[in-house]
Every structure is written in structure tokens, then in C-alpha cells.
Design a protein around this nucleic acid. Structure first.
Lengths: 149, 149
DNA sequence: TATTGTTATACTCTATAACTATA
DNA sequence: TATAGTTATAGAGTATAACAATA
């Protein structure tokens, strides 16, 4: 019988989550774009336009790093920069339609890999995962909140 | 009613797994060591000594990259290199006791974060996760095998 | 000749420090 | 004077190409 609150559950879960993510990443690689670019595009895709400084904060990188990263993405047409009309020191960075396509593409390739793996599972295993998904979401939001403790 | 085999389950699971991993990484950062170093140490910790070429293959990096990465870890005393007694062209790289400590330390800090999040969940959510863990392991091993399709 | 690894070189991502322009 | 970003410079991680040593 499994003891829910044991460190074994936490350690087993940590290990499995880590391997699942890394395997998924390996299964559907980013291809042309780097990990830093992929993360930047996903943020701009999900959050919408933002200032350079907010982008740097959310990506946990420094401003000069953000400048260089965004410059590269602009050169490739995946991101665009506009002066902020309310503050002439600032710039607003946005994902382009081409950038949206790049994010959607990688996500759908990863979804396909997960769909295939789920289809190969037993019905019992598949439904166990379906029933745990809300609990995993709950755990994720709690972990996220510890960040700003 | 949730349709287990729907793309929605795959997409929701992919999203939650991704966020869980990234949040966990952010919650318990590697600190002094880089991501590449952490991955290298985890591999050597779990697999044991190996040749430079096998290390490069398993990390999906090129040999010159592996040489530089291992050189850095050697300088920090986390990894050691020995000539392979059976083939004088080759070297065997191993994790040192200090490197083992570094891996154990980061893993235990991540386990602590997961333990805390699990403890904060409802009993129903915690047991849903406990019951899904074998299914998640099953899914992970299937995804891993697709890699060598 | 084929294999194992290293050296030389270059590009990206990361950082700190110093600078410019605007508030 | 403080804030938003950029430029200058440096270190780590990545790659390809060319090389050295050994099988």
C-alpha cells in the first residue's frame, strides 16, 4: 500500500516529472530555434506584448541579455519591436504571426507525441492520468506561488 | 465527462508537465553549477563511469563540447578523468564524491519542494497523483522508446 | 584506414560595467 | 536624480573542421 504523504511519493514524482519533460523535449526538439528563443517566444505568445524590462524579469535574465535575444528574434522575423507611445525610453516587444506559428508548431508536435503515448497506455493507466490532471495543475500552481514566498 | 483519449487530455497534460518541470527548476535552482553541468553530473551519477564518446552521445552533444564541459567539471573537482586501460586512445570519466554530493543536494531540495506542495494538497488530489504515478512512469518509458524509433 | 579524443575557431546565451536618452 | 535600454566586453556552451594518437 502506497503512503501518499511519504517522501518516496515526492521523490518518485520529481524523478518521473523530470524525465517526462526531458524525454518530451528530446522527442520533439525545437529545431531551428534555440532553447532561449523558444522560451522567449512561448512567453510572448501566451502573455502578449511587453516591455523589454518586464520580459527580462519574466525570463529571469538581465537586460543586456534580453536585448541581444530579442534582436536575434527580430532578425529572424519572429518578434517585432515598437517604441512605447507612453514612454519614449521604453520599447514594446511582440511576437509576430510567424513567431506564433513557430510556437504552435512545436507545441502541436509535442502534443502529438503525448497523444501517441497516451493511446498506447492501458485504459486504466490513461484514466488514472486523466483523473490526476486537475491535481497536477493544483500542485503546479502551489509550487509557482512558493516562488514569490 | 472527460474524454480520456481526446487531444485535450494530451495538450493539457503536455502543458502541465512542462510548467511543473520549469517551476520546479525555478523553485530549486542549481546555484553554482550550470544546466549543462547539472545534466552531466546527473548522468554520471546514475550511469557510472563512461568514455568521453558515450558521454557525448548520451548528452546529445558533440565531442569537442563534451571535452570542454568535462574539463570544467574536473577543474571544479566534481568529475575525474582516467585513461582507459583497455584502449589508450580513450578516457574514462567518473563523478567524484563531491560531484555525488552536488547531485544529491539539488535532488533533495527539489524533493523538498514537491513534498511541501503534496502536503498542501487535498487528500483526494494527493491520492489521485499517487495512483497516477505508475501510469506516468509507463508513459515516460513509452515516450523514451519512440526516441529510438 | 578507422576510431577516440583534442585543438582552433566561431556563434549564441549569459553576465557586469559603463553609457545614452528620457522621465 | 532615477529609470529604460544599449553598447562594450568577457565567460560558458554549443558547433564544424582540422589535427594527433592509437587500434
Amino acid at each position: 500500500m502506497l503512503d501518499d504523504s511519504s517522501p518516496d511519493l515526492a521523490s518518485g514524482l520529481r524523478h518521473t516529472l523530470t524525465r517526462l519533460y526531458l524525454t518530451l523535449r528530446r522527442n520533439a526538439p525545437l529545431g531551428d530555434i534555440s532553447a532561449a528563443q523558444g522560451s522567449a517566444l512561448a512567453l510572448l505568445h501566451d502573455h502578449g506584448p511587453m516591455r523589454m524590462g518586464e520580459f527580462a524579469d519574466r525570463e529571469s535574465i538581465r537586460m543586456p541579455t534580453a536585448t541581444a535575444l530579442i534582436d536575434g528574434l527580430c532578425r529572424e522575423g519572429l518578434v517585432s519591436r515598437e517604441p512605447d507611445p507612453t514612454d519614449r525610453r521604453a520599447v514594446l516587444i511582440s511576437i509576430t504571426p510567424q513567431g506564433v506559428d513557430a510556437v504552435d508548431d512545436i507545441r502541436s508536435r509535442r502534443d502529438d507525441a503525448v497523444t501517441r503515448a497516451l493511446a498506447d497506455l492501458s485504459e486504466a493507466h490513461r484514466s488514472a492520468i486523466a483523473e490526476a490532471l486537475p491535481a497536477l495543475r493544483d500542485m503546479q500552481s502551489r509550487l509557482e506561488n512558493y516562488d514569490r514566498k
